[in-house]
Design a protein around this nucleic acid. Sequence first.
DNA 1: CATTTATTTAGATTATCATCTAATTATCTA
DNA 2: TAGATAATTAGATGATAATCTAAATAAATG
Lengths: 92, 92
Amino acid sequence: MRETEKHESLFSAIADIQRRKILNILKKGELSVADIKSHFDLSGATLSHHLNILKNAELVRVRRQGQQRIYTLNLSVVEELMLIFNQLFSRI
Amino acid sequence: MRETEKHESLFSAIADIQRRKILNILKKGELSVADIKSHFDLSGATLSHHLNILKNAELVRVRRQGQQRIYTLNLSVVEELMLIFNQLFSRI
DNA sequence: CATTTATTTAGATTATCATCTAATTATCTA
DNA sequence: TAGATAATTAGATGATAATCTAAATAAATG
């Protein structure tokens, strides 16, 4: 399997513990930024930064709902990441 | 599952593309540093640095053989990492 | 035992990244 | 429409991390 820029963005997205925590929280279901924020001791700007990285890696999706933005896990990319990951260590 | 320092070292170990490449190369079998080096355009010092990070994360093992050091994948930790990884996205 | 070979360690440099505060954008509501 | 609320963006700062060259360590060999 070739390493692509997409792989790069996925691996660096999950390299940060706060972002892994966000992914974990989103497993339970979609949440607004404020809801996500309630689990962290981070400024809104920092959280926004992390969400942006997850979004660029397509690990999450966003939609607008009034003033809020609702984040969800992007299951298809999560599955893709699991595949990439399994292949990194396959045939050993 | 709780995130531990061990998880942290594993995720940051695989965050770097050179280190993922090293792991990939080691899938085929154990290799000396010089053998690994032949796959890269990096100084020996830099390679040594990456190998050290992989070793600290216990993703690889080293043994001495004369002047050489032979690196191998540490299969049990690789499996542990796969488990951690699968759990990050389980129950979605 | 002096020299060569294999690898690591030390120390410096540069780039990347997480974080913050302040400012901005967008939406809602009285 | 003015003010409040939700979230992002801009810009700065400090911490990490990747990389290099040079020096050090350790083993092999003539």
